[in-house]
Design a protein around this nucleic acid. Structure first.
Lengths: 336, 336
DNA sequence: CTGAAAGCGCTAACAG
DNA sequence: CTGTTAGCGCTTTCAG
């Protein structure tokens, strides 16, 4: 069996407590005995038992990362950022894929809380106003940081871009490229979806372009929403000459639909997505997009969470905004 | 604080053990008291403390999933398969991204073992022959299942495709499409890399095509290996007219290099990858590939692992092979 | 500075 | 069928 503190204590003829204190650099222990203990620990390759420790301290050094879709490389990248920050601090990261489903999310978070994670980082799939989940977290006093999608009503920590800014940036870019009829394939009714839509509208308004309801297609989440939504848009008359897509996977689908209809990107229809997924550059038409600095989001959220965990008293929630960054590739380049 | 068994026991005027047994459907308890206990548990929303339970049972209901790269959608898909199988059984899945680095992998597995995971599923980044890690696991008696990459020397459970078969399938396909000079951009020195190379060679031999060393470029792992490797291949004379790439991301990079050189895919050079990543269909040239049924691999590995965990005695290791499946898209279609 | 006592929440083994 | 007794490996508290 694994070596325990008691083994080391017996071995050295000291008490169990001395060993325990030596291990954790407790102050009231002499330099000499500490070293003696630490040396023996190394020799015997002692590994503290996390579970026993958790039981008494109440801390698990486990952090839950709750994401809507691991296949979306934006989230995979966020996950990498989180893990890179947290692992060196001794935390274990448990990733949970909710498949963009609020109920699944609630169940998973429940499990994580029961497992006594020290904190949570969540890109929530909760629809507007569904905030019981976060009330529950508050009741449990489990610290959490929202990423990517802010939820009104929860005054929680947040790290991500301002979605309306992102939407406006993308839309204005299309307008600047000479698009007259800019459409939007919108995302699910979470903050990213509604925020980007708001930005889109704001940009149109700014340039005095009337908003055409037929140009806003509802996109639920799914693997070929972009493809299907674009097919709908192609039926409108006059058809749009530019489309701001909720995210890159949606944009990729849209491009597929356009090419299948024997139209050209960007000449007939310019396309821009969001998220800058790592293969954007390799798509049929290299995809213009708005970068959200996914890794930075992950790292920042991790830092923020650790702060919350360490400082027992809940400090006022912080909102950290990462500026969106336009990445112009072929799919929207019509000038210059 | 959370409600404990003792609270329920006191509340109901029974002993703690009665509650414990009722919860776990122990046989020696009367229907009546069991129901009384269960009812009260529900009312008080009792949640067992799995840490305390782990401490005495030695089981954590945590499984580690160790992957070389979460950004590669093949592995993300595997992860989904694993989670989908394991979560309903009450397991928590901890994903660890080793960044294709054997040392990182060893460290991460160490941590997971110290955390007393019940088992591991590993797509190992260990280079040929580095099997200390698995000796260590055997010593700890931690059950594990290898996926995607088999390691000679460990007689471990394995789930994945036969890589030489995959390589032969891809290469023969290119030959069947009329390619005369088939090159290979090879992967890292793990089983997938060497196996696919072996299959490539076997296919060439089968058709009596002499193997040209200049047509085999070494690809270490990285984001643009495919791109750089292809640039090298383009310098050979005569240049290849077909390339079997280690995997889809590599193939995507290769296509980019070819198009940049003003050559056409597949007319000038046909390309095939492996893994069938979810965006293969959306690339500059829709990518032919060999599908490995990633979700099935994940699910199968999960099943196998749970078997190992449940049956204490180590049964003889099993090797489960999933047949590779050719997916022909534009990047290699020259006929028919 | 060192150590003895108590207990975290639960379960295995056995006694009534 | 029900309950008692002993821990699991560690830390917190407090006495020497």
């Amino acid at each position: 069996m694994a070596v325990r503190m008691k083994d080391i204590a017996d071995d050295l003829g000291v008490s169990l407590m001395t060993v325990s204190k030596a291990l954790r650099n407790h102050s009231d222990i002499s330099e000499k005995t500490r070293n003696r203990v630490l040396k023996r620990m190394r020799e015997l390759n002692y590994q503290p038992d996390w579970i026993a420790r958790s039981m008494v301290t109440g801390r698990t050094y486990v952090v839950g990362l709750v994401l809507p879709d691991l296949m979306h490389s934006f989230f995979a990248e966020v996950a990498k950022g989180v893990a890179r920050k947290l692992q060196p601090l001794g935390y274990q990261v448990v990733i949970s894929d909710t498949e963009e489903n609020g109920d699944v999310e609630r169940r998973q978070v429940d499990v994580l809380v029961n497992r006594k994670v020290d904190g949570l980082i969540i890109a929530s799939a909760q629809r507007k106003g569904r905030i019981e989940l976060f009330d529950m977290l508050a009741a449990h006093k489990t610290p959490y940081v929202l990423i990517d999608r802010m939820l009104a009503g929860t005054d929680a920590n947040y790290v991500g871009v301002k979605d309306d800014e992102l939407g406006a940036l993308a839309t204005e870019h299309l307008i600047a490229q000479g698009c007259q009829r800019v459409a939007h394939i919108r995302g699910p009714a979470v903050a990213t979806g509604t925020g980007r839509l708001r930005g889109y509208r704001r940009a149109l308004a700014k340039y005095g372009i009337p908003s055409n309801p037929a140009y806003i297609t509802s996109g639920e989440y799914g693997d070929n929403t972009g493809y299907k939504a674009m097919q709908e848009l192609l039926k409108t008359d006059p058809r749009p000459d530019g489309v701001f897509c909720y995210n890159d996977p949606v944009a990729a689908g849209a491009i597929k639909a356009i090419l299948e209809a024997n139209l050209r990107v960007p000449e007939d229809i310019a396309i821009i997505g969001a998220g800058n997924v790592h293969y954007s550059d390799l798509l049929r038409v290299p995809l213009s997009t708005v970068d959200q600095s996914s890794t930075v989001i992950g790292e920042t959220a991790a830092d923020l969470l650790v702060n919350c965990i360490d400082s027992q008293k809940q400090s006022a929630p912080r909102h950290i905004f990462i500026p969106p960054r336009l990445v112009v590739r072929d799919s929207s380049r019509r000038k210059g």
